[in-house]
């Protein structure tokens, strides 16, 4: 009898607050947008009477998959993405009854290639980065494609330091890696004659342009950018690939390599001069606006100048804001819930 009572008591402790209709916004998606979305969510929770939204960090692809699974309170209302939604994803959404999606552009994020302050600062071109990191590269005479033979930077270009090529970067599941491949490797690869020559063979061309070497020069360091920062402090020869906000926070220890002669600074990225930057987005399920309380107010908070504006609190956290006219356009589209058409 005593035991039954104890169990009953524990049960009642555990199950107070039974499930009702959801009164809390649910957000999933990109780990790159996560630090910004959480900052907005917290501010939103503090300054309005709504509950603070719950935000999961699932990655852009995973987020869109959850988002497009259907309409109803068991599905998320908003998904963050560090890339634009794909046509196939829009189709999946439509198939599951989600016909109206609002796209909100948040701002930009730069991807930096940086090393310790105690090592010389590198000035790289995209081609040099390709030669250092691609799995297959053109041979010296430019006629054939061979496995990457370079082991030091100086072998690629005598002007670069004579240190081992060692780059710590994100694994293939990461949006940062996707963006880096797209913005650096794929852009650089067609400037080599030998790779251009195989352009008609789509499969091989894609594999060459996207393939990252697996012989130890590129180290998959996991999704945790702080870990890469700590490893760079300890290993002065290594370079790391991560989002600009981590360089911004660790400017006393790390320096960003110049890419195509441009230093990764707040100004250079927002002006579009720094070549490795991407746009960040989030997507709203229009059907949930009105059923789940607070979505419109969340949009208002996110697109306010004090959040994603030039001097807003998101800029303090490393987001590169858009210019005022673009922000105005994004804000209007967001608040009118203008559906995305592709």
């Amino acid at each position: 009898m005593k035991k039954t009572l104890a169990v009953a008591a524990l049960m009642s402790v555990a199950f107070v607050g039974a499930a009702q209709a959801r009164d809390q916004i649910r957000i999933v998606g990109s780990s790159t947008v996560f630090p910004f979305a959480t900052a907005v969510a917290e501010e939103f929770g503090k300054t309005t009477s709504f509950k603070t939204p719950v935000i999961e960090s699932t990655g852009s692809g995973g987020g869109l998959k959850l988002f497009c699974a259907g309409v109803g309170e068991q599905h998320p209302d908003i998904t963050n993405a560090s890339r634009r939604i794909k046509k196939s994803e829009v189709e999946t959404c439509a198939k599951n009854g989600i016909n109206e999606i609002t796209e909100v552009k948040v701002g930009y994020d730069g991807i930096v290639l940086s090393n310790s302050k105690d090592a010389p600062r590198l000035d790289l071109t995209k081609e040099q980065i390709f030669l250092a990191l691609a799995k297959t590269v053109p041979s010296k005479d430019g006629k054939s494609l061979i496995d990457n033979p370079y082991s030091t930077w100086a072998e690629i270009d005598p002007s670069l330091p004579d240190v081992k090529i060692e780059v710590l970067g994100p694994p293939p599941t990461s949006g940062t890696r996707d963006a880096f491949t797209e913005l650096v490797l794929e852009e650089a690869c067609d400037s080599f004659e030998a790779i251009k020559a195989i352009k008609d063979n789509k499969d091989q061309h894609g594999a060459v342009c996207k393939g990252v070497r697996e012989d130890g020069a590129y180290v998959e360091a996991g999704e945790n950018d702080n870990l890469i920062v700590q490893k760079l402090e300890a290993n002065h020869d290594a370079l790391g690939i991560f989002g600009f906000s981590f360089l911004d926070q660790n400017g006393d220890k790390l320096q960003g390599s110049l890419i195509a002669g441009v230093e990764p600074t707040f100004e250079a990225i927002s002006a579009g001069d720094y070549p490795v930057s991407r746009s960040l987005y989030f997507y709203v399920k229009n059907a949930h606006v009105g059923t789940i309380p607070g979505i419109k107010e969340y949009l208002t908070e996110f697109t306010s100048d004090k959040a994603f504006g030039g001097e807003g609190y998101l800029a303090d956290r490393g987001l590169i804001p858009m210019d005022a006219t673009e922000r105005e356009a994004v804000r209007n589209a967001a608040l009118n819930l203008a559906p995305l058409s592709m």
Partner: peptide, 10 residues
């Protein structure tokens, strides 16, 4: 694995 500000009540 989520950002949750409110202390859960149940």
């Amino acid at each position: 694995v989520a950002f949750i500000v409110d202390v859960p009540g149940g």
